[in-house]
Amino acid sequence: MKEMNVEIVPQIELGKVYETLSHPESGGICVFVGTVREFTKGEQVVSLEFEAYEQMALKEMQKIADTASEKWKLDRVLLQHAVGVKSVAEPVVVVGASSAHREACFAACRFLIDTLKEKVPIWKKEFFKNKSVWVSAHP
């Protein structure tokens, strides 16, 4: 049975990710963790703030998990995104998959994060010392 974990959380708990993705039939788990980077184009970032249209974000994340499970033979799939204010080096997103062989979970993991960034209605504001910017808002 396929188990999927799709959540929007105040805090990413990386310690629980292994337990959630672990499966007796899996020979590997692949996980991507997105974190707050200190510099954007040479400017020092103080913090990031994430806002989600939660109901729709969860729906879109579930669709991504479903599509990944159709494309690859996966045992478990996880997508979690944090909301609120996050400081430098803190985790803000985690995606992962487990599978019998590593090719499937590596490919799925890349698909999960790439599609999440493209489709899921979550917005990030970068706070610098003297200004703040909604990321990707303008060309």
Binding site: G34, Y53, H81, P121, I122, W123, W134
Partner: peptide, 10 residues
Amino acid sequence: IAIIPPVSGG
């Protein structure tokens, strides 16, 4: 109905 400006999660 919701307005979805360019998304920037992750």
